[in-house]
Design a protein around this nucleic acid. Sequence first.
DNA 1: TATTGTTATACTCTATAACTATA
DNA 2: TATAGTTATAGAGTATAACAATA
Lengths: 170, 170
Amino acid sequence: MTGDPEALEPHELATLFALTEAANLLQHQVEQHLRAEGDLSYVQFQLLARLASTDGPLTMTQLADGVVYSRSGLTYQAGLLEQRGLITRGPSPDDERATLVAATDEGRALVEAILPGHVQVARRMLFDPLSADDVRRLGDVMGRVRDHMRAQPPRSAAPRRRAARPAPER
Amino acid sequence: MTGDPEALEPHELATLFALTEAANLLQHQVEQHLRAEGDLSYVQFQLLARLASTDGPLTMTQLADGVVYSRSGLTYQAGLLEQRGLITRGPSPDDERATLVAATDEGRALVEAILPGHVQVARRMLFDPLSADDVRRLGDVMGRVRDHMRAQPPRSAAPRRRAARPAPER
DNA sequence: TATTGTTATACTCTATAACTATA
DNA sequence: TATAGTTATAGAGTATAACAATA
């Protein structure tokens, strides 16, 4: 149990905790803002923003990628967004199994209306205490980290298999 | 609507998105691990780890700080941890309104049993693609950001007031 | 009166499994 | 047989408000 060769250095642990706590605090403030401003959850905003910044429509699977980790969860959220007229869903000509999703004009308008405030929260919480050089390097580092994480595990929604043994008690 | 003096530079937006996406991916993997290894949610792990790394007991309010954003949410989670014998709750001698919370030996043992795997996930997901210098600087930057965020808003659990108008329809 | 914590309750969200339909 | 998506359902988690007790 002790003496792991893989153990983190103390300053690595501090880095990990600082990163996660900061991310949590940021996310909480962002969620407050998104809910107040556009009555959107963070997940809904991510989905909508992704669609709004895309030219053509996306399939459900493409839309889920990296945001939602179960198919049914995406269907649920997409249903909510569709009910509000922010997105549309329709069959795909190419693959009749697929559903194509796109943002409506109203959906794009909502994203544009929310984005300035969103960005203001990020500025106040995240960027204010950083120098321009800090930001540049943070972006570089986190970009690499994100790409690495994306490549790592089966990141898309739908581990159709998986043991998932019910907590093997030891 | 347009021409905000507060708007973010494109590379700032990219930094924000990289940070949040990476944090989400990391958190998801961490949650998978914590659930499989110790049958704990991320919030429960944070609470337990905070208590385990503390000498004396904490009040509920102190324990909540930065982790949970509603009093009732903490009461709920503390109830679960207490049921499992991982923490104890008792009255405070100093302030009879307060509840003092402490980790049990079993609780500390669980944290220690989980931590190596936790750290391994972090290494695989976060630290692997980074140089030692990257990590050092990331820790510095995120430490500053965290401290800044902590100081910013009413971060503790219990905004007893707040308008919370029911989604003012426009 | 203000603060600490709990309880009741309603609601949102997520995940598993079963199911349909197409490739 | 494998993949895309939906549905049903159950469970976990959160937040609001009302409450009791102490400062």
